[in-house]
Design a protein around this nucleic acid. Sequence first.
DNA 1: CTCGAACATGAACGGGATGTCATGAGCACC
DNA 2: GGTGCTCATGACATCCCGTTCATGTTCGAG
Lengths: 225, 225
Amino acid sequence: MRLLLIEDDDDVATYVRNGLREAGHAVDLAADGRDGLLMAAAEPYDLLIVDRGLPKLDGLALVKTLRGTGDDTPVLFLTALGTVDQRVEGLRAGGDDYLTKPFAFSELQARIDALHRRRTQAAPETILQVADLELELLSRTARRNGRDIELLPREFALLEFLMRHAGQVVTRTMLLEKVWDYHFDPQTNVIDVHVSRLRSKIDRGFSAPLIHTVRGVGYVLRAPA
Amino acid sequence: MRLLLIEDDDDVATYVRNGLREAGHAVDLAADGRDGLLMAAAEPYDLLIVDRGLPKLDGLALVKTLRGTGDDTPVLFLTALGTVDQRVEGLRAGGDDYLTKPFAFSELQARIDALHRRRTQAAPETILQVADLELELLSRTARRNGRDIELLPREFALLEFLMRHAGQVVTRTMLLEKVWDYHFDPQTNVIDVHVSRLRSKIDRGFSAPLIHTVRGVGYVLRAPA
DNA sequence: CTCGAACATGAACGGGATGTCATGAGCACC
DNA sequence: GGTGCTCATGACATCCCGTTCATGTTCGAG
């Protein structure tokens, strides 16, 4: 689980970060609101833990801005500003939970888990994304760089499989099993042909291709470095 | 928004219920844990507000039981049991939020809204259900009474449209527009043929058909009475 | 009950999506 | 830089899905 902690007080930041790391999370740290916003916008996090009294950009404004961009990453406010009005303000601004300092670490963890539990169980993925390529599973359409791409059923299945294994090499055998449901080798180049057709739709005309062939093994879908 | 309040203290129950009703919610009330569990299981609620010290079945056990059945309705604990350990316990048992008495009504409302906001925005529908017929939009398969049914693309589109308008009569013109994307009358019986094929897959062999023809108008998908 | 129109359905047809083939290009190893 | 194998791709063949057609059935009005 990837977390972003936005907190300017070094002592609190260190304490929380260490605790969360021990619990097995990957924790990034931002020391002011400006940095926090930039990092939150640049990387996909599972949860943001946000202080309110931050230098450069306060936590409340940060969350409002983020929500304004359509980002719906869960936010947990962790702050000393604990009056009822302040708590309401934080939740109304788009926060999902609000915990006041001083706090018990065990409660922070329980609240983080509760947010995460709901998010993962309640939401089957409906959009796959790799670099600037998006695949909408419900409408069965692909989009690259904002441009809509029509896919035939088999091409869709192939791309979905590649995207679900983005960054991993996918062997021909895997493709035959999972995309074609062949449990034998058809002794033909079906795969090559469909990869070629898919490439012509999603890579043709773009400077950096996403589909790469791994000679003797298979293919990878990988975001350009 | 449909809420179920499970609270044995009459004064608190009345106070909360009235406040929520003024905010425009439909509120049901259960005065003990047993009733609360039965009501939560019988009706679909958007949120449960649960006290912990309840007669017959305490709130914690209630939520654990509910989660055990696979019910994932959001739960907000509203209780006087406010130590850190008790809060953690409540969240770990499957609660989504935990507010301790005495509480400010405005905060309760803000927390309810936060839970609801996340639930609705984050979850595009992925399964349609009418009576014992289910349609999984991601895997593109139908199931009736637990039995899997294979659908061709056009059949799938047709069934999806009928299910999204379950209970309403769907005219031939609507079907041509929305399922076939024809903006004229093809002067053929395409629709009849596909309805017939769909029927043979989802209604054949079941005592109560779901697809009904409305002579001179179109078709309806309706759950049997 | 009769008659006409609307609907149901099995069968055949046509076209598009998928798979096959043949040829050419690219890469690795020597 | 040659050689053999792997991969890329345009063209062709096949098969399945969607549409049409023909025929039978049901329904409602009078």
